[in-house]
Amino acid sequence: MTVKRLILWLLPTLFLVGCGDEKTEIHIAAASSLTEVMVPVTDAFERENPEYEIVPTYSASGTLKDQILQGSRADIFVSADPRWVDELEEAHMLEDRVDLLGNRLVLVSPTERDWVIDELTDLPSMHEMETIAIGNPDLVPAGAHARAALEEAGLYDMLEDKFVFSGDVRTAMQYVETDNTDAAFVYETDALASGSVRSDLIIDTPEPIVYPAALMEDREQEEAGAFYAFLQEEEALQIFREHGFQIP
Rank of each mutant, 00 (worst) to 15 (best):
Y228V: 03
T13R: 00
V78Y: 06
I28G: 03
H243V: 05
K65N: 14
A146P: 04
M216P: 05
E22V: 07
E53S: 08
A229D: 14
T2D: 12
D200S: 07
A149M: 01
V169Y: 02
I28A: 11
M173W: 02
L34F: 04
V17S: 13
A80Y: 02
S199Y: 02
G167R: 03
A236P: 11
V169D: 12
L6T: 09
E112H: 06
H92S: 10
D43I: 03
A149I: 04
L6A: 09
Y156L: 13
L237E: 06
F77T: 08
E160Q: 15
D157A: 12
F15E: 03
S166Q: 00
L105K: 05
A142T: 12
V3H: 01
N136Y: 07
I209S: 10
E95Q: 14
R104D: 04
L10P: 03
N103H: 09
P40M: 07
D114Q: 15
L64K: 13
T131N: 02
L6Q: 11
G143T: 06
N136E: 13
V37E: 02
V164A: 00
E235N: 10
P50Y: 07
D168C: 00
V176R: 05
M126D: 05
S194V: 05
L155C: 03
E130R: 15
T178C: 00
D161S: 13
M38P: 01
A133Q: 00
L100A: 03
I7N: 09
A214S: 11
A149F: 04
V164N: 00
A144S: 13
L201V: 00
D81M: 09
M126H: 03
V55F: 03
T35Y: 11
A193Q: 14
P124C: 10
D161K: 14
V106S: 01
Y211F: 15
E87D: 13
Q174M: 02
S72D: 15
F240D: 07
E152A: 15
R219F: 06
G135Y: 08
Q70L: 14
D204S: 09
E220W: 06
E151L: 08
D96N: 10
H92K: 11
A148L: 05
Y58C: 10
P110I: 02
F227Y: 10
M129L: 15
D86T: 15
A193G: 08
A146Y: 02
A229R: 13
D161C: 06
E112R: 13
A80N: 12
V39E: 09
I239A: 07
Y52Q: 02
V39I: 13
M93K: 14
L150M: 11
A148E: 13
Y58F: 15
F227N: 01
A30D: 05
L215S: 06
A31R: 09
L101M: 06
E235R: 14
N103T: 10
S166T: 15
D182C: 02
V37W: 09
D43W: 03
E36K: 12
G244A: 11
P124V: 06
L201Q: 00
E130M: 08
A74S: 12
L100C: 07
A229L: 01
